[in-house]
């Protein structure tokens, strides 16, 4: 049987320890060891973005990161996006714009959009579309998602001013 490795990391601001198989992905660990099932597996090959998380400040597919690599790192997932009971502006805008249908891609898209707005508070439609090109959505045709992200960006700029 597998030798399991202990990993210590900070997930959504909280220190966590978990045991993992060396071959397990960060996504496996988040879902199976930490019970954070908001990150989804749509492909397991980095092609759909449903497992997007922020690792040490960088947007990544958690299916393309080994769980053992998270040792000593900071991980942010969809579960950490709302602060307490208060939704992030992006989450609120996704609801207002009906920017989700089945909702399966939604956590990954929200995490990716949050990463976008952190580096580019005023993205154009084209920049938003290219940034999110790694997040497949099969339901919406992306229209309302792009509108929601840009509206959230506008509102965040207001808040900052």
């Amino acid at each position: 049987m597998s030798k399991r490795t202990q990993v210590s990391a900070v997930v959504n601001g909280d220190p966590v320890d978990f045991l993992t198989d060396p071959g397990a992905t960060l996504l496996d660990a988040l879902r199976d060891e930490l019970g954070l099932t908001g990150s989804k597996e749509g492909c397991g090959s980095g092609d759909c973005g449903a497992c997007s998380v922020i690792l040490d400040g960088r947007l990544v597919c958690s299916c393309l990161v080994l769980a053992v690599e998270a040792e000593g790192r900071r991980v942010e997932t969809i579960e950490g996006m709302a602060e307490g009971g208060r939704l992030h502006i992006l989450q609120q805008k996704f609801l207002e714009h009906a920017a989700l249908q089945c909702g399966f891609c939604t956590p990954g898209i929200l995490v990716a959009a949050k990463a976008l707005l952190e580096v580019n508070p005023d993205p154009t439609e084209s920049e938003t579309r290219y940034w999110l090109a790694g997040n497949l959505c099969r339901c919406t045709g992306y229209d309302k998602i792009i509108r929601a992200v840009m509206d959230a960006a506008a509102e965040l700029r207001q808040v900052r001013v």
């Binding site: 980095g46 973005g49 997007s52 690792l55 960088r58 947007l59 990544v60 597919c61 393309l64 990161v65 990716a112 990463a115 976008l116 940034w131 999110l132 090109a133 790694g134 997040n135």
Partner: peptide, 9 residues
């Protein structure tokens, strides 16, 4: 190469 996510790695 790949998506924004892939670029992160």
């Amino acid at each position: 190469i790949g998506s924004t996510q892939v670029q992160g790695r």
